[in-house]
Amino acid sequence: MTPDITVDVGSPTPPYEQIRSQLADLVRAGVLAEGDRLPTMRALAADLGIATGTVARAYAELEAAGLVASRRRTGTVVTGRPVVGSAAETAVRRSATLLVEQARAAGLDGETVLAMIRSALATGR
C-alpha cells in the first residue's frame, strides 16, 4: 500500500516542514525503503495544491540530512536506512498500523482518526 502524507495549509508549521518531517519519519520507520523513488516535485505539489518550490525545499532539506538523493535519471530516491527502535516503540508502531486498518475497515477518514488520537493524547496526559 502506498503511504500518504498530509499537509495542513492552515497550520502554523510551514508546509515544507510538514512534508520534510513526515517523509523523514517514513524513512526512519522503514515504510520508505532505500532505493524507493519519491514522486516528482511537480507531481507532489500538484497533488497537495501547493507551490513546487515548497516541495523542492522539503526535498533539499531531506537530501542535506542524507535521507534522499536527487539523481539525474531516476529523480529523487530514498537513501536513508530505517532506525531500529526499542521493542516498546516497535509494539506501538504495530498498534498504530492495526488502528489504521481498523479505522479504514470502519469507513473512518484520516482526519477523524487523527482527531481521536489527539483527544486520547490530551486526556492521557
Partner: peptide, 15 residues
C-alpha cells in the same frame, strides 16, 4: 479539480 480545504493528502506514488 484542484485540492481544496486546509488539510490535503497525497499518496507517495511516482507516475
Amino acid at each position: 479539480p484542484r485540492p481544496a480545504g486546509d488539510v490535503r493528502r497525497a499518496g507517495l506514488v511516482r507516475r
